[in-house]
Structure formats: C-alpha cells, structure tokens
Amino acid sequence: MAAATDDLLIEARGLTKRFGEFEAVRGIDLAVHRGELFGFLGPNGAGKSSTMRMIAAVSPVSGGTLRIFGLDPRTHGPHIRGRLGVVPQLDTLDQELSVEENLRIYGRYFDLPRAECRRRTAELLEFARLSDRAGSVVDTLSGGMKRRLSIARSLINRPELLLLDEPTTGLDPQARHLLWDRLYRLKQEGVTQVLTTHYMDEAEQLCDRLVVIDEGRIVAEGSPRQLITQYSTREVLELRFPARDGSASTAELADQLGGVGSRQEALADRVLIYADDGEHALGEVHRRQLRPDSALVRRATLEDVFLQLTGRSLVD
C-alpha cells in the first residue's frame, strides 16, 4: 500500500446520515491523517455524534462514501472496529463487573488471549490511575473515574484510531485536566484521535485541526489559530453599560460605536467590539463620550468563532 493512503485514516466524501425524514448529516467531506488530533465542534444536534457513530462502523452510512483505514465500514465492519477505540458520550461500562473485570472482559470481545488481557489491564489501570480501585464495582466510581475507565477500556486493543464523543462533558475542572493530560500523552505515543466537544477551551487546548459543524454541514475548517484569525479579530473588547431599559439600548449603543474596531455586536447586557487592538478601540470609545461601567480587553477565543459561525440563539 502506498504511504499516502496508509496515512489517511478517515476519508469521507459527501457523507450523509438520514433518520427517516430527518437528515442529521448533510454531506460532509473529511480527511484525518495518522497522528492527528482532530476535533468536531458544534452545538447539540449538529450531527457530531451521528458522524462519529458512522466512523465507528456501528451506524450504517446513508449516502456518500466513507473509508476507515482505507476500508468500507459496510463490508469490513468487524475488522475496522478491531482497530478502533471508542469512548461513547454516555458511559457503557459494565455495571455488573468490577473495574478490573471491565477491562479484562472487554479485551476478550476483541478476541485477545486471556493472559494478554490481564497484562494490558494492569497497564491501563495504572494509566487511568485506577489501580487502587481495581476491585470496586463501577457504580461506586466518581464521574471522572468512570470516564477514565471508559478511556482505558477503549485502549485495550491498542487502537490506531481513538474516537472520543464529548469525553469531558459533566466533569469537574480537576477531572478534565487529568483527562486532557492522558489524551495528550496518547497523542505523543502516536495514537490518532478524533473528538467531539462543545467546550471551546478543550478544542483549543487539544486539537491540531478541527471542523465546526452546524445543522449537519461543515461550516469551517482549520487549526484553532487559523479559525480565530479567519473568523474573528485578534482581540475582543467587552463593554458593559449602566442598565437602561431593555436590549434596544445595547443595539443603539452598538450603532453609536459604528466604525470602532472591525465589527460590533450587541448582546442583551453588553456590547462586544472585535478589534485587532482592543486598547486602541477602548480609547476610541472614550473619545465618543461613551462611559461604560466596565471594559475588558481579552484575546479572541474559539468561542467567538463558534458563536459567529453557529449563531447565538439556542438550537434545541
């Protein structure tokens, strides 16, 4: 096999997924290469999980083409799944088994020899910092421990490609940072990872490259830095004004601020000014005789990009 195709772990063209009348994924093109940490960013219901389930060779493709390791999931499902690790959005740990048995028995589903399962289980317990809980029943673990166990379980077959569906949703900051640390270590070991998230800091910290999905389509693609440069300014100035009546006033203020920075956005309680130099923009605000209660200059984040691309209204 040529090096170029060997390097391409996921390739999708015009990938779609329909559930009856509803089209969850509407034609996605993707290419994920070996060693990458690739992210799907999008609001709830954007089609992230549906795409992940198709890549995991669990959910059948409705249209377009999908190749994982150069293979068609329709015909090579078991083979593909044997080389994948999957961390589902909701833990599917075996509640009737202990922590240690969860890992060992999962390895058996991959048809690994018993002795090998035992060896890898000990390793992974160490990796997930769960060695002292090996005999515990799953139910007694904290949320963070369960996620770590899920990740450890997904590694039992030494996957070439790890799929993580919202790995840190619902975790406290300590648990998230520990998890990020583990994912980063895996990346250094050369494990290709694809993750979905709606935490921007997570995507910014971890992903080499990401796509923003909205309503089943890719609306932007690039590295976190590229996306910020392309869809936002370097800095954002947040202005809070004394309370007046209603949101119309922030819109009026935004009008009065026309021409300051490269773009103005009126929210219910504040006005955002996108500018490459936030301090300079603030000076301009003062020159126009506007007196905000507070003014904050910050670096633009992926969150600004995300909200610009997918809108601020609640999608559910």
Partner: peptide, 8 residues
C-alpha cells in the same frame, strides 16, 4: 452498545 463497538 459497548460490545458492538468491538469486532462483535
């Protein structure tokens, strides 16, 4: 669900 994510 967990089992079907493997070659099973």
């Amino acid at each position: 669900d967990g089992v079907l994510a493997t070659p099973m």
